[in-house]
Design a protein around this nucleic acid. Structure first.
Lengths: 166, 166
DNA sequence: CGAGCCTGGTTGCATTTTGCAAGCTGGGTC
DNA sequence: GACCCAGCTTGCAAAATGCAACCAGGCTCG
């Protein structure tokens, strides 16, 4: 029984998880986006077995999130640099970091703090609506079928979104 | 060899993934946050085997993301309702949805579109700095050691953040 | 010029997790 | 009484994962 694929769901979340959802994958992206780009470096910081890391890096290259580049001959050394698609993973990591800080925090407090380079201050990024500019609070997001919705999804009414709760 | 735990990394991302990172877990949260809360309902929409779903729901209840509630006797039926911690998972799903729309979109376009309930318009949520209110662009986030940083993390200089790329 | 070290992996095999089918309990219902 | 439904649990077979060991190319030091 091959692992069931996620991507038969016509869902962007499932599509994203099909690539990013594997064990270790997002931690590898964390390291790359923090600037650690060499095999041994990533391996040390993530604590992953070398065969797994090898597999994940190859997969990320295949899917176009990373590019493998020789940055030195004699000795031959490689680095994995993020592409646009790879850099776009950052908001996912930010969201996970914020959830972790809020609900799985180490007793001593957050190990890492985000700084907004443009203004120089600590930044808890927040979601805002591109249309009205307002902060998007709990329960203020709905989901409606988009252009790519299939028949079943089109039949769904306006649903409480991922953010809406009780 | 037991599966290696993530949570020895003193990292909120790893801590979050230790709970949310399992196969199917985030898809289950997607369904619950979309309002589908009965076992069979979730199962049908996610397409997961019942033993796995049972395991994930139990785990999410144990970690305080969901609450199992009897909503009918005769016949006895249960629903899984998200707690505050569960509802806070929504931004992670939003980030994944946006990444999926951008980089793993079905040919016909996004299957689901987010609507900002407060203003009634479609909303591509964006990250903004809580301090200066500015949109946080590529490369505009840095990471610094926080109060809970361990020795190794404290030794790290100001790093390019998850969002910074090349 | 050989020993030892670094980088960047691959290979082999045991363990864990996942997947599907089948069954099971406690009810309702025709 | 026969049959259906919800909400699971149990029993294997197939993947994925984990660790140790190894390997190859190249440098470097004595």
């Amino acid at each position: 029984m091959p692992y069931r694929a996620f991507d038969d769901q016509n869902c962007s979340i499932a599509g994203a998880l099909a690539i990013l959802g594997g064990r270790w994958t997002l931690l590898v992206m964390r390291e790359v986006l923090l600037g650690r780009r060499r095999f041994a470096d990533i391996r040390r910081h993530v604590g992953v077995a070398p065969n797994i890391l090898s597999d994940r890096l190859q997969m990320l290259v295949d899917h176009g999130l990373l590019q493998r580049r020789r940055y030195s001959e004699h000795p031959e050394s490689f680095e994995y640099v993020p592409t646009r698609a790879g850099r776009d993973v950052a908001p996912v990591l930010v969201a996970l970091l914020e959830w972790g800080d809020a609900h799985a925090a180490p007793p001593a407090g957050p190990p890492r703090v985000l700084v907004h380079a443009a203004c120089g201050h600590d930044a808890h990024p927040e979601l805002r609506c591109t249309h009205c500019g307002g902060v998007i609070d709990h329960g203020e997001l709905l989901v409606r079928p988009g252009p790519g919705a299939d028949e079943r999804q089109r039949a769904e009414p306006l649903l409480p979104s991922p953010r809406a709760g009780a």
